[in-house]
Design a protein around this nucleic acid. Sequence first.
DNA 1: TTGTAGGCGTTATCAA
DNA 2: TTGATAACGCCTACAA
Lengths: 333, 333
Amino acid sequence: MITIKDVAKRAGVSISTVSRVINNSKPVSNEIRQRVLKVIEETGYTPNPLARSLVTKKSQLIGVIVPDISDFFMGELLNGIEEVGKIYDYDIVLCNSYGEPDEELKYINLLKSKQVAGIIFVSWKMNQKHVDVIEKANIPAVYISKNATEFDVYSVSINNFEASYDMTKYLIENGNKKIAFMKSSAQDNIMDSDRYRGYKKALKEANIEIDETLVKEGDDTSESGYYLMSEILEAKNIPDAVFASRDEIAVGVINCILDAGYKVPEDISVSGYNDIKLASLYRPALTTIKQPIYDMGAVSIRMIVKIINNEGLEDKKILLPYSLIERQSVLKK
Amino acid sequence: MITIKDVAKRAGVSISTVSRVINNSKPVSNEIRQRVLKVIEETGYTPNPLARSLVTKKSQLIGVIVPDISDFFMGELLNGIEEVGKIYDYDIVLCNSYGEPDEELKYINLLKSKQVAGIIFVSWKMNQKHVDVIEKANIPAVYISKNATEFDVYSVSINNFEASYDMTKYLIENGNKKIAFMKSSAQDNIMDSDRYRGYKKALKEANIEIDETLVKEGDDTSESGYYLMSEILEAKNIPDAVFASRDEIAVGVINCILDAGYKVPEDISVSGYNDIKLASLYRPALTTIKQPIYDMGAVSIRMIVKIINNEGLEDKKILLPYSLIERQSVLKK
DNA sequence: TTGTAGGCGTTATCAA
DNA sequence: TTGATAACGCCTACAA
């Protein structure tokens, strides 16, 4: 392996000079600069990032902690993170926490020991403990989590409250009165989620009373959606529509409805949330809230870079635009 | 940050001694070992991996190059890689090549400069150049690619030829005679893919002549499947079944068939390949070849670790078992 | 503008 | 069994 020393020798200069031209850190006479550059070119020398990090105490690594790599949402998110990360010359070290707080905490420390330059923390549901640990590690961090806005941290998300409100209103406007809602399990979260609050607000405005038997709570999987829907169906209290707070859940819901012999959207309309790839692939194609998932990843790493470089950040919380995508799973009036 | 020096001082020993107890590299008297251990415990000291790698020339990083992170297949694969990697204390640095050979090559070099301990190279279609570059970088590598078996490298896959043969035979046994096949674009690959060969063999055995107009070639997306199927439909040469060499393609195919007013599987049966999550979520649920995707990831990193540690590896090519999953997209006779 | 030398946190060699 | 000390490849005062 060729080192800075070799380059220096071949160029007939000291290693500090080579270092200077590499980093543009101090003036170097043009003649010498050219000479050094030429040698670098010839030898194909690249600085050893390890040695560099050791002295600068900074690496070109960004740690990304996600709850499930194989989740459809994460794939698109990671795409965004990776792609713009590359632009700024950062690499991604990937950690799969399985959503378990212990794992998440462990990974934060592990990443710290790896001297990552920053952390993007993706979680189903974050809590103060996460914030404390990351804060203590003193690493720039950006959070992506449904409830990230509840904390005083850098975060990127969409306005879940408004989006959910819009979708519910849309459902109502299309003639649906009995609207079921699938929320994801509350865990240690006392407050109602933004999405649930948006749903409630829309109903209230339309003077529709909330039917608690139509509000179900489960986890973020299609299996859960299937099960929850089967409960509703069994109770014989058939809704006009169901609003699932996640596309995967919506797909489970639809599968259940179909298996029970009803039709979607003719008998029951179903809407999702996120607009993952699956949403447009599935039939009936899902009417859903489009989150700019790729962009969320892109923006979050851009934030990290800004924090690292002390560039100004206007806002700690970035809210990206969402949109309501009309497809086939909701019957239009 | 607390270093080995601090530990040494607090324990009243030299840093070499501390290093020895950390690495168990040389005998240390029990009394001193305990003392050092205690200090480590108290101070919460963890060795700096960077400094360590700098001297050992080895890191605990495994580079994973994938063609598309958001691909359904990759998610499950990465899950396997990450989880098993963690067991052996390896972290994953993730690279997205977009399937572009230039990017792939660049990443290999980048990973080398990061001193990764190994590379898992995932590619739609690999070629000799990849092998050469990785070989030259002299880094342990395992390949996951449909055509990996064509090269003399460590690889993990399933027996694509047999699996494809089985599926085609299954289709035939269920009364289908005119069976279309969707293969993925050949690129620089002269030979027919294993999957296509399996298809041909089954047809031949059943004395069915290959109808070239029913063999289509496109890329690995559902859009491609949709388009290819529309061509077939337009040609009015309606097949009994179509065998798509990838689940995503199959979904596109079905969507096209559905949109054209035909029924699946009543009018046309469709089978996929891979058994990604989508396959069971979609309706009609896909009859497909189940690749043990998670296991493929798990096995590949296990191989890397073995190579690194010079443990014996029986075989360069590991073939994992596959199975034919019967669901709803193929009509049973 | 350039070079010398010390140090980043480890491991590894060689004496003691 | 232990301890100095020289690397590892790079950056950065400090001097020249």
